[in-house]
Simulated assay, not measured.
Amino acid sequence: THGDALNDGKTKEVPWVLELTPMPQSGSTLGDNGINPSEPMTLETVDRFAREIGFAGRYQLNFPQGETGVWTLTQDSMSYDANSPFIDRTVHIDQYSGKILADIRYDDYNAFGKFMAVSIALHMGTLGWWSVLANAVFCLAVIGICISGLVMWWKRRPSKVFVLAPPPKQPVWWTMAIPLLIIAALFPTALAAIVAIYLLDFLLVSRSQTLAKWFK
């Protein structure tokens, strides 16, 4: 797969949507016209061809691995080659014939792949100063929520008491289940965290008077 062949150890450089996609193989008659087969397939030849087909600035060039390996040219925001995920591009070249076996761009991603490409770029702040500012504001907001929550708890507690009385019972807010289900579908680890917290509350906290006194 792309992930096995192109990711370097723990470093994730392959676009998320391509990680499990099988790599093409050299040695067939497939492919579109690429490098002139009369030219030697050297690093300089492949680099020159990359520039000719539109790879400007920084990009990644991967050598063929084994007899069926391919030359791979990649340029994407996940590797910090470019600021925008919309110019993501991965090109595979047959090491023998010089033909282009695959030319994958952002427009070729499926809907979820496009969503992840943009989300990762937003998360890493590579879309410009405004995305860095948005990340900073979000982080400060989380810190503010933590601090303000502690302040509100401190003001609400009775004097010389460090544990609040349990709030009156209220109906379950089932509407909140909808965004939770969406998050769980998109991020399985979030689902695991939700289930773990529920089990912790049901099996441990609710059965211990001491813990219930502190957490309920």
Score class of each variant (00 low, 15 high):
residue 173 W to L: 12
residue 180 L to K: 09
residue 149 G to R: 01
residue 174 W to P: 00
residue 166 P to A: 03
residue 141 A to D: 04
residue 164 L to V: 07
residue 119 S to L: 11
residue 132 V to C: 03
residue 176 M to D: 07
residue 128 G to M: 05
residue 167 P to D: 14
residue 126 T to N: 00
residue 156 R to K: 15
residue 166 P to Y: 01
residue 131 S to F: 03
residue 163 V to C: 06
residue 131 S to V: 00
residue 168 P to D: 11
residue 146 C to N: 11
residue 141 A to Y: 11
residue 135 N to I: 00
residue 115 F to Q: 05
residue 179 P to V: 05
residue 178 I to N: 04
residue 146 C to M: 15
residue 155 K to R: 15
residue 170 Q to K: 12
residue 121 A to I: 03
residue 157 R to K: 15
residue 148 S to E: 09
residue 173 W to I: 10
residue 159 S to G: 08
residue 152 M to F: 14
residue 168 P to G: 00
residue 144 G to W: 03
residue 164 L to S: 14
residue 140 L to M: 08
residue 134 A to P: 02
residue 156 R to G: 15
residue 149 G to D: 05
residue 150 L to V: 13
residue 118 V to T: 10
residue 139 C to E: 11
residue 126 T to L: 07
residue 135 N to M: 01
residue 152 M to Y: 14
residue 147 I to E: 05
residue 116 M to K: 08
residue 178 I to L: 13
residue 131 S to Y: 07
residue 119 S to F: 15
residue 130 W to C: 02
residue 133 L to I: 08
residue 163 V to P: 01
residue 165 A to Y: 09
residue 140 L to W: 07
residue 153 W to T: 15
residue 146 C to W: 12
residue 141 A to W: 02
residue 153 W to H: 13
residue 166 P to D: 02
residue 147 I to K: 06
residue 151 V to G: 01
residue 144 G to S: 00
residue 172 V to D: 06
residue 141 A to N: 02
residue 150 L to K: 11
residue 134 A to F: 01
residue 132 V to G: 08
residue 179 P to F: 07
residue 175 T to P: 05
residue 173 W to P: 07
residue 177 A to Q: 07
residue 121 A to P: 01
residue 178 I to Q: 02
residue 140 L to C: 12
residue 125 G to V: 02
residue 171 P to W: 04
residue 172 V to A: 08
residue 154 W to Y: 13
residue 169 K to W: 10
residue 155 K to S: 04
residue 142 V to I: 14
residue 123 H to V: 00
residue 154 W to I: 10
residue 134 A to W: 09
residue 118 V to M: 06
